[in-house]
Every structure is written in structure tokens, then in C-alpha cells.
Amino acid sequence: MHNIQKGRVDYLLDVWDAPARRCQPELVKPHLAREHIAPTVDQQADLCPTFPPEIVFIDSFSELTDQTFRHKVGGWTFCCNYLDLAHTEAFSDEFESLGPMDLSALDAAYDEMLKRIATRWPGVPVVYLHFPDALETREKFQQRARHIRDVVQSCEQRHDHLFAFSVPSTVVQRPEVLEPGLEDFPYHYNQATYDTFAEMIGNHPRLRRYF
């Protein structure tokens, strides 16, 4: 498996076109407020697998919530959640925030990403998972989730190797065991949410052979 958790689509396209703009993890990690996300910073410097994938999974979380930050001197960027970082004076001296992805550019970005996957790995399916927003109470993120769903639905009509899945909101609940400090976090779920995703994908007539 090759995993890029903070792989916002505009970042991926930018770095594939200009590798010099890829994240430099050793300069980012001293500024993390949440040290457990350090591996996701490392992943942003190693974008492509060395093996041809059987199947590609994409989810909506990075486009939904992650922000881009740019190194003021080097011009390279990285992505993470705003609260993943310690926003100290030292961080502000070194980096500037470019904010979340402009969703007006999302359709073109997904379209380009899907074309590149189809060209590089013909016949490989792309499974798109919509992060459930049933626990989200902030209107701006609810709006972003709706916009992303509309864009992906449009992309499905143009790309026959794309398969998108959303879990019904009636299934989505908070985890059975809440992690301290994450009691109100709306993007961790009960086991039934994950099981439903797995069942939907595994039962799809064009995808079940992979599972």
C-alpha cells in the first residue's frame, strides 16, 4: 500500500508538475502541535508508488478540511489541518497560510487527476469515499461537503473508472470509544460506518473482484 493522507488534489498536481515544490518535512515537523501527524508530513514528499496499483482510493477529507501552507523563502508547500500546527511567531516568520482549497477549482483538478490516473495506469479503478458530514455542525464545512459531492457526481459521468460512495447518515454515529480531546471531532466514526463503506464497495459488481 502507498498512502498519502494529506494529499490534497491541487497539491498533488502542483508537485507532480514541479517536484521542487514538494514538502520538506524536516522544516515542517518542528512546528507541529500534534506530533502524531508527522508521518502524514513525510508522505507528502513521496507521492508516487514504485509499483502499479490494482486500485486507487481517494477520499474527500483533505479537500474538505486541510489547508495549504507555503514556505516564504523556498516557495514550496505542504498540507495539513490548521490545528495540526503550533502557530507561533517562529512558524509565522517561516510560513504563510494559503487556506483551504478554492472549491471553484475542484472540478478541473479532479478531472485532471482522473485523466492522469487513467493514462498512467489504464483500467485501474478509482474508488472515491465521501467523508460523512452527519456529525458536522459547522455550516461552512457542510457547504463544502455538498459542493464536493456535486463535483464528484459530475466527474462520475465523465470518467467510467470512477466509483463514488457515501454512507447513509442514519448509519453514522460517533466512535464507540471516544479518544480524549476528540469527543466533539466530527470525522471519527462508529465501526458501522466503516463496515458499511466496505460492504458497499465489496458488493459493487465492477469492484467485488478486488476483494
Rank of each mutant, 00 (worst) to 15 (best):
K6S: 12
G7P: 03
G7M: 08
V9E: 08
V9F: 01
V15G: 00
R21S: 07
L32K: 10
R34L: 02
A45D: 00
P49E: 12
P49Q: 13
P52M: 05
I55W: 02
F57G: 06
D59W: 04
L64R: 03
D66L: 10
Q67D: 01
F78L: 08
F78P: 03
C80V: 11
N81P: 10
L83R: 13
L85F: 06
L85H: 03
L85S: 03
H87Y: 05
H87P: 00
E89C: 04
S92A: 15
S92D: 11
F95T: 01
L98N: 08
D102S: 12
A109N: 03
Y110T: 03
D111N: 15
D111S: 14
E112Y: 03
W121Q: 02
W121G: 06
L129C: 11
P132Q: 01
L135Y: 06
K140A: 06
F141K: 10
Q142C: 02
I148E: 01
D150T: 12
S154C: 08
Q157S: 12
H159F: 12
D160S: 07
H161R: 08
A164C: 04
V171C: 05
R174N: 08
R174C: 09
V177H: 12
L178A: 13
P180R: 00
D184L: 08
D184N: 11
Y189E: 09
N203P: 00
H204R: 04
P205I: 07
R208S: 15
R209Y: 02
